[in-house]
């Protein structure tokens, strides 16, 4: 709990990511309309919203995979599209992205997957890079024997862990996770949440976490932003959000699943 309280002090720090007036549309379909959002240093920000509310599109807009139709996305105080390609590549090195389905390179084995950015960006020798890659694999809880396996031979949970190891390869300042616990069994999902918090505490990165998993929200997020009606409906601590007077938010947090997750989280904290 003490850790959570220290988090609140970060509120007056410069945000690492600031999104202002973001508009995204696909044809006539407006996904985001004047969306504003801040991600603060060292926090785990959970992004929730109904299916199709544009959570993944928001992630893609921030990391520069989709050019916003209007508005401004600033990362570490700079807009990505104002940078030249070299500065942009420098900036992108400070991101780690975990895609929904892992997106591990299928022609490389796991240790090569993770060694690739180390060789390309940090200019390590192949043996050093592969050694560090194995450290990262072990860090996310994968056995040494997995290092030489190809991504297609892995289970869903192992793919998520390996993808996390790759996202962490360059020790990023911001980690973007797109539904990291989707498709995992509850035990693996809980282990993943715990791993995320431990690594965040150790490495001090910020996390932009798109999720549907209420347990993840309660166990690991410092703040939550609700995306609804094409903008950020509310952003704040879980208690603040749960108190928001909005039908969707109420249904989300006070439905049977929401209550169960809340209960589980509070008994967990009492035990601590």
């Amino acid at each position: 709990m003490s850790d959570r309280q220290t988090k609140h002090k970060t509120a007056d720090q410069e945000p690492v990511i600031s999104v202002r007036g973001l508009v995204n549309r696909f044809g006539d379909n407006v996904v985001h309309d004047n969306l504003n959002l801040d991600v603060l240093p060292g926090e785990i920000l959970g992004i929730v919203g109904g299916s199709g509310s544009g959570k993944s599109v928001l992630l893609r807009s921030i990391v520069g995979l989709k050019r916003p139709d209007e508005g401004r996305v600033e990362v570490f105080g700079q807009a990505l599209d104002s940078l030249d390609s070299q500065q942009r590549s420098q900036m992108e090195r400070r991101f780690g992205v975990l895609f929904q389905r892992g997106a591990l390179f299928s022609s490389l084995n796991l240790q090569e997957n993770i060694a690739l950015p180390l060789i390309e960006h940090a200019r390590l020798s192949r043996s050093d890079a592969e050694y560090l890659a194995r450290v990262k694999l072990s860090l996310v809880g994968l056995p040494a024997s997995a290092a030489l396996q190809s991504p297609e031979s892995l289970s869903g949970g192992m793919v998520k862990r390996a993808a996390l190891a790759r996202a962490l390869a360059l020790d990023p300042d911001v980690l973007f996770l797109d539904e990291p616990t989707a498709g995992l069994d509850p035990i693996s999902a809980a282990a993943f949440d715990e791993l995320l918090v431990t690594l965040r505490d150790a490495l001090r990165f910020s996390v932009f976490l798109v999720t549907h998993d209420l347990d993840t929200l309660y166990s690991s997020c410092d703040r939550v932003a609700v995306i609804s009606q094409k903008r950020v409906l509310a952003a704040g601590t879980l208690d603040e959000i749960a108190a928001t007077q909005d039908d969707w938010v109420q249904a989300y947090f006070h439905g049977p699943r929401g209550r169960a997750a809340q209960q589980a989280a509070s008994t967990h904290h009492l035990q601590e």
Partner: peptide
């Protein structure tokens, strides 16, 4: 600092397991 202790402990724990994949 607590974070660095946590980082070091975590990496040490990870590396206390055998890292070398089986040689082929």
């Amino acid at each position: 600092s607590a974070e660095r202790q946590a980082l070091l402990a975590r990496v040490a724990q990870a590396m206390s397991m055998s890292l070398a994949p089986k040689p082929v």
